[in-house]
């Protein structure tokens, strides 16, 4: 067990850093304008000039994948921040105060949790027209219940420990107890939840793009590139392969990190019932 620790974490984190650098500095790495079409050189196979080949309009797939990383990571991280913020706030309130507030919040999380995320996301985006902010809002808005459950459980456990009771007896306000004493102790769990929320969001965004309801072309995203590519799988293996591999690699990096963190925080691991909270 001890021997195992860390491998995933280090691998995952270095992959994430690597991908982030690529995404942030994409203009440096992209050797072509991702929007530049070329009527002569469409569907060219990967080579020295075009590392990942070109698409049907002669655009450089490598450059599009690199630019796509920006969109995917941005959507993933923003959606994660949203679901973590909402989830932590609601989960903390429910766990700390219990009673009616707890009932109310937990039923709300139950209601959102019973919807399959992808279906709800598809529905919402279909109704309100696809746009970047909406995609973030929808993914974040469907991701928070998992976090809320997790934080609630953690807070409930912590508030019964002696230090919390002591702080309360010394006259600390509820707010202070929650913010200063309880939440920092739950931080580890929240970070784990965050590392799992990012890949889930990236996957959902790509799925929406694949069904044509995500961010619309010509802005390159991995999902909408795959959508275009599926009509050319016989002509150009590289068309579908590289955007998909990019999704896989990114999601894998975050999953590795999450797994590594989890092992660090809780070597014994949790039982199935609680783990449900962040594997949706």
């Amino acid at each position: 067990m001890v021997r195992r620790q860390g491998v995933e974490l280090y691998l995952g984190i270095s992959l994430i850093i690597f991908l982030t650098v690529f995404a942030v500095l994409s203009p440096l790495f992209a050797n072509y304008d991702p929007h530049q079409t070329d009527a002569e050189r469409w569907l060219q196979s990967p080579g020295k000039e075009h590392f990942f080949g070109t698409d049907r309009l002669g655009r450089d797939i490598y450059s599009r994948v690199v630019y796509g990383a920006r969109v995917s990571l941005a959507v993933g991280i923003l959606a994660m921040l949203l679901s973590i913020t909402v989830g932590t706030a609601l989960g903390a309130l429910a766990g700390y105060f219990g009673g009616f507030a707890d009932q109310l919040i937990m039923r709300l999380t139950d209601i959102v949790l019973v919807y399959p995320t992808m279906l709800l996301a598809l529905t919402l985006v279909a109704i309100f027209e696809p746009a970047i902010w909406l995609v973030v809002l929808v993914i974040g808005g469907t991701g928070w219940p998992a976090v809320a459950r997790l934080v609630r459980g953690e807070i409930m456990r912590l508030k019964n420990l002696e230090f919390a009771a002591a702080a309360r007896m010394l006259g600390a306000s509820h707010r202070r107890v929650l913010l200063v004493h309880l939440l920092p102790n739950a931080l580890g769990q929240i970070v784990v939840a965050a590392t799992v929320a990012v890949p889930a969001a990236i996957m959902t965004e790509a799925g929406l793009g694949y069904f044509g309801l995500g961010i619309q072309p010509p802005i390159p995203t991995w999902g909408n590139m795959l959508r275009e590519a599926q009509n050319y799988i016989r002509h150009a293996w590289w068309y579908a392969t590289f955007p998909g591999a990019a999704i896989f690699l990114t999601v894998f990096a975050f999953h590795l990190t999450g797994e590594g963190l989890r092992q660090r925080l809780d070597p014994k691991s949790q039982s199935g019932r609680e783990r449900r909270a962040y594997d949706h």
Partner: peptide
Amino acid sequence: NSGNIVRENVALL
């Protein structure tokens, strides 16, 4: 309408 690669190219041109 997105997904129509021909029209997309007409637009870009």
